[in-house]
Amino acid sequence: MEAFWVSTGVVALGEMGDKTQLLAMMLAARFRKPWAIVAGIFVATVANHALAGAVGSWVAALLGPDWLRRVIAVSFLAMAVWMLIPDRLDDDEAEGSKRRLGVFATTVVAFFLAEMGDKTQIATVALAARYPDLVAVVMGTTLGMMLANVPAVFVGDRLSRRIPMTLVHGLSAALFALLAVLTWFNVGKLIDG
Rank of each mutant, 00 (worst) to 15 (best):
M1S: 15
F4E: 01
V6Y: 10
V10D: 02
V11C: 05
A12T: 11
M16A: 06
K19E: 07
Q21N: 07
M26R: 12
M26S: 12
L27R: 12
L27F: 01
A29H: 10
R30H: 10
R32K: 15
K33L: 05
W35K: 06
I37M: 01
A39H: 01
A39F: 02
G40W: 08
F42V: 11
F42P: 00
V43Y: 01
V43E: 00
V43M: 03
A44T: 08
V46K: 02
A47H: 05
A47R: 03
N48M: 07
N48R: 09
N48D: 13
H49I: 02
G53W: 08
S57E: 13
S57N: 10
W58S: 14
A61N: 14
L62K: 15
P65M: 03
D66I: 09
W67Q: 09
L68G: 15
A73P: 14
F76L: 10
L77H: 05
A80D: 09
M83V: 00
M83P: 00
M83R: 06
I85V: 15
D87S: 06
L89Y: 14
L89E: 10
D92M: 09
D92G: 10
E95V: 05
E95T: 08
G96F: 11
S97L: 05
L101K: 13
L101D: 09
F104V: 14
A105V: 14
T106V: 13
T106H: 07
F111M: 11
F111N: 06
F112R: 00
L113E: 04
T124C: 03
V125S: 04
A126Q: 08
A126H: 13
A126W: 06
L127K: 05
A128W: 00
A129L: 06
Y131L: 11
P132T: 01
D133N: 14
D133I: 00
D133G: 03
L134Y: 01
V137L: 09
M145V: 04
M146C: 07
M146W: 11
L147R: 01
P151R: 00
A152W: 10
F154A: 00
G156D: 02
G156E: 00
R158P: 02
L159R: 09
I163P: 10
I163W: 09
T166V: 14
T166G: 06
L167N: 09
H169A: 12
H169E: 11
H169M: 13
F176H: 06
A177T: 10
L179P: 08
A180L: 04
L182F: 01
N186M: 07
N186P: 00
G188I: 07
K189N: 04
I191Y: 12
G193M: 04
G193D: 05
